[in-house]
């Protein structure tokens, strides 16, 4: 995978809005942002109600994903072009999620909604009417998804990358600072994890930094390319952003996203937790 395959510019996106075979999909942290205006022709996927199981803490299962994409009018042959707000956190999460269920033709708009709005590009409120399809998903590709036991086993043996802010990493904050600081779990990080905040991979306008800058970012903290890598954050969306950088832009092998992330790990009994800067 490479930048050319995985990423498109807002300019490219605007020029290709009407191209058959492309489906633009908005996935937002703020699930109401779509209602206020979205890219012409774009459909919405709600990460909370449509990608997560309503009862268990897990993703919708394979038949559920097939039903969702069929209803959205997305076929197996379509190229899905994702974008969203808040620096593409949830769009990157959806990108990883589409790959998890085997949809390979997927791209992310560099900078997402923020870059699009700062560019002053058109937003519309009309909701497109796409005919239903009969989508077939693959079994989950667990080569890109990490579970808690392998995370515990990775302590001291694999690259663990904590992509939260330094204050969350140290345990000073329990959540990103746009949210009230209330949570039941312990603060801190997984021992031996490197703290590379997701934001270091992005520019202020939400676009990704250059490949050279990104390669230097991870080299500088001592990421060992001979080892497998697991990225995590609080609920797995910011780490999808860093997974995208490592796997899709830099082409590193054997990179997994731990979607359980700190909300799971920081609530486990018996696992080691480290506080402080870790430096």
């Amino acid at each position: 995978m490479s930048r050319e395959q995985a990423l498109v510019t807002t300019d490219w996106a605007e020029q290709h809005l009407d191209t058959p075979g492309l489906v633009f999909v908005e996935v937002d942290e703020d699930t109401t942002a779509y209602d206020g205006g979205h890219l012409p022709g774009a459909v919405r996927i709600n990460w909370k109600t449509e990608l997560q199981d309503a009862v268990r803490r897990d993703f919708v299962d394979r038949p559920g994903f097939e039903k969702l994409l069929s209803e959205k009018g997305i076929s197996n042959d379509d190229t899905v072009v994702l974008y969203g707000g808040n620096n593409n956190w949830f769009a990157a999460y959806a990108y990883w999620y589409f790959k998890l269920y085997g949809h390979q033709a997927v791209k992310l708009i560099d900078g997402g909604r923020k870059r699009w709005e700062l560019d002053g590009r058109p937003l519309v409120t009309e909701v497109p009417d796409r005919p239903e399809t009969s989508y077939t998903a693959q079994e989950q590709d667990l080569a890109i998804r990490a579970f808690r036991d392998e995370v515990v086993a990775a302590i001291g043996t694999q690259n663990l990358i904590d992509v939260r802010s330094p204050d969350e990493f140290s345990g000073k904050l329990l959540a990103p600072a746009h949210l009230p600081q209330e949570a039941a779990q312990r603060g801190g990080h997984i021992p031996t994890a490197l703290n590379v905040p997701w934001s270091k991979a992005a520019n202020e306008d939400g676009t990704f930094k250059s490949d050279a800058e990104l390669a230097e970012l991870y080299a500088a903290v001592g990421l060992d390319d001979s080892k497998d890598t697991i990225a995590y954050c609080r609920i797995g969306e910011r780490s999808s952003h860093s997974w995208f950088v490592l796997s899709e832009l830099l082409g590193k092998k054997n990179v997994k996203n731990y979607d359980g992330s700190w909300t799971e790990y920081g609530s486990l009994i018996g696992v080691p937790v480290e506080t402080g800067s870790g430096a």
Partner: peptide, 10 residues
């Protein structure tokens, strides 16, 4: 407040 996996929403 109870911990929820949906609490990263803005």
């Amino acid at each position: 407040a109870p911990l929820t996996a949906s609490s990263c929403a803005a």
